[in-house]
Write a protein that binds this DNA or RNA. Structure first.
Lengths: 153, 153
DNA sequence: TTATATTTTTAGGTTAGCCTAATAGGGCCG
DNA sequence: CGGCCCTATTAGGCTAACCTAAAAATATAA
């Protein structure tokens, strides 16, 4: 009896090992913000990013420098930030999973504002594999629910 | 056309406001770990928590002190940690949502180990409201899929 | 009961991600 | 051109969450 539950504790340990090696949540947030601003204005200013993420300009600048070192963005003094090809690839991956999660949440009846918030919060953590499976459920159960599962309420 | 997209940026801002004020992810991790060990052994030692979360004993001790200040646990020097009633309430809420997310992920075909990891990672972020909606989809589409959505694969 | 091993605690860092205050750069108006 | 305003940058700090090394307390074995 004790053995069974100790097994559960082993699982907890494994679950926490799994977290390691993920890219920093913050970096992805910044890349995503730059991507969105760039779509609209062609490039992102420090203050744009600052306003979107709710952090101060010096904080943005620090992260921008880091992202530049990692080859994700190009930054010219007083001239704004642009994604590199690599940065764009990352941004697009993030945007896709964000959008999928968002659609899913809205599909199951979560209101739009909350869906935006919660998609943002969980998008960093799901694997490709899980996203694909979520996509399937979304397609098969939420988008065309075959007479079941009224999402509202 | 630009207006529509600027609206999207406004949404991004809101989404990031929404993050604020959430309880620290770490605190919940520690409460959860203590809860699990307590279920097995009656109380949690610093080293138990340390092993589960993959952090060093001094780190655990620091957090335990913080949780004690917040009234979540009782800690007696050299005698281990126990949850208070309040701590137990929190732990049980966490455990419930963890289990729901885990079941959901397994239900849509995610393998068990990954489901453990990812449930852990997202459980902190979903609201009660979203959890309830997820539960409904789980019940209606995953557990009894009414002839659709073969989860395996 | 003394020696040894284990666990807990203390002391003192490190790093990421944020902050404020102050300086520098660029655009624009009179 | 000079002054003003806004944006960008630099400098210096803070806190949360981790770390290592070493001391203290407890448990165990000879």
């Amino acid at each position: 009896m004790e053995n069974r539950q100790v097994g559960r504790i082993e699982l907890l340990k494994k679950a926490h090992q799994g977290r390691k090696g993920l890219a920093s949540m913050s970096e992805e947030d910044y890349i995503e913000a730059i991507y969105e601003v760039e779509k609209v204005y062609g490039y992102a200013r420090v203050t744009d990013i600052s306003e979107i993420l709710g952090v101060r300009p010096p904080t943005v600048l620090g992260m921008v420098k880091r992202l530049e070192e990692k080859g994700m963005v190009i930054h010219e003094r007083h001239r704004g930030v642009r994604l590199t090809e690599e940065g764009r690839r990352v941004a697009e991956r993030i945007a896709r999973s964000h959008e999928l999660i968002r659609s899913f949440l809205i599909g199951i009846g979560v209101d739009e504002e909350r869906a935006n918030i919660e998609a943002e919060l969980i998008e960093h953590f799901l694997s490709q594999e899980t996203l694909e499976k979520l996509m399937r459920v979304y397609e098969e159960c939420v988008k065309r629910p075959s007479g079941r599962a009224s999402p509202s309420g």
